[in-house]
């Protein structure tokens, strides 16, 4: 169910980008460390349609943050820009270093890892091999070495498989390690993809709708496990429709609507923002005061 009204007009949206407080961002990042991700004037058009428009926000380093918004808000498009699949205007900075025009594989080597709405796995390969692919970004085995059975290659392969298996164990699917992923249930495929993303020890882990197809408790457990495994060096950035889940785990929430930044802040700040309240629940089909209904829809998180 989409809680966002489709007729939300841009004219009602304030220039939120100017409202971001640099001081607050710096405080959120903690200890003076640069934010995990900074967007400045990020925009993108598809055939004249403005998919992202002048986005500016900061994601603090460490913990979990989230991007929410209705269908077509530009959440996955933003992920595609961050991961380098789409070219964009403006600038993205990862831990203080501009990403510039780096290509996707170069961004992966910089520490960006992500999952997809529909898990993108090698269907004919085993769960273990799929997870092992996550180590490619930091592999020291080149093209020639990888064709030969060198000692370095064998050692790296063994270590990678051991780490991959340990991750599968941690996510509770070690029994599926040798099974081709084509036959796995959606939730298990999702876990395999998350494990693959984690294996690369990313500094920014982007999860695109990780709760899709999972029960509420399963999703909570998965995210808790991800955050625990990733540790403080990894920032988790979610795109998620399940608002209650987002409000319960996110440190900072970015709200997009029609490619524009609608609001940004802590879950409490976002929840209290009248623009978000209106966007989420609308005014015309309201059964009661909007803030109460938003509160109710995120009640699990409170």
């Amino acid at each position: 169910m989409n809680h966002f009204p489709c007729d939300l007009t841009h004219s009602t949206l304030p220039a939120v980008t100017q409202a971001i407080s640099p001081d607050r961002s710096a405080n959120d990042s903690g200890g003076g460390a640069p934010p995990a991700l900074v967007a400045r004037g990020v925009g993108l058009s598809f055939a004249g349609l403005r998919a992202l428009d002048d986005l500016a926000f900061e994601i603090p380093a460490g913990g979990t943050s989230a991007v929410i918004g209705p269908n077509g808000a530009g959440k996955t498009t933003l992920f595609n820009c961050i991961s380098g699949l789409y070219g964009y205007e403006g600038e993205l900075t990862l831990h203080g270093r501009p990403l510039g025009r780096l290509r996707p594989h170069q961004r992966a080597r910089r520490g960006i890892s992500r999952t997809f709405q529909t898990p993108a796995l090698l269907d004919v390969e085993s769960a273990l091999q799929n997870v092992a692919l996550g180590a490619v970004a930091h592999s020291r085995v080149g093209v020639v070495n990888s064709m030969l059975s060198t000692r370095r290659r064998r050692r790296e392969e063994r270590e990678t498989l051991e780490r991959a298996y340990a991750l599968l164990q941690r996510l509770g699917i070690a029994a599926l390690a040798s099974r081709p992923v084509a036959g796995l249930a959606h939730g298990d495929r999702r876990r395999v993809e998350v494990a693959r993303a984690l294996l690369s020890s990313p500094s920014l882990l982007m999860l695109d709708e990780p709760a899709a197809g999972l029960g509420a408790e399963e999703a909570q457990d998965l995210l808790a496990e991800v955050e625990a495994y990733a540790g403080s060096d990894t920032t988790v950035l979610l795109v998620e429709h399940d608002v209650a889940l987002v409000m319960s785990v996110a440190r900072r929430v970015v709200v997009l609507d029609s490619g524009r930044l609608l609001a940004i802040g802590t879950p409490d700040e976002v929840r209290a923002d009248p623009r978000v309240v209106e966007a989420y629940l609308g005014a015309e089909d309201a059964d009661g005061p909007a803030p109460e209904r938003l509160h109710a829809s995120t009640g699990d998180a409170l």
Binding site: A108, R109, S113, E125, L133, V136, H138, V141, V143
Partner: peptide, 23 residues
């Protein structure tokens, strides 16, 4: 070989492969 795994990953889903750090 690991090279083969990368080649198969690219053949199967180039976008996903790129995001894994595969050129």
């Amino acid at each position: 070989t690991p090279l083969g795994l990368r080649l198969r990953a690219v053949a199967d889903n180039p976008d996903s492969a790129r995001l894994l750090g595969i050129s």
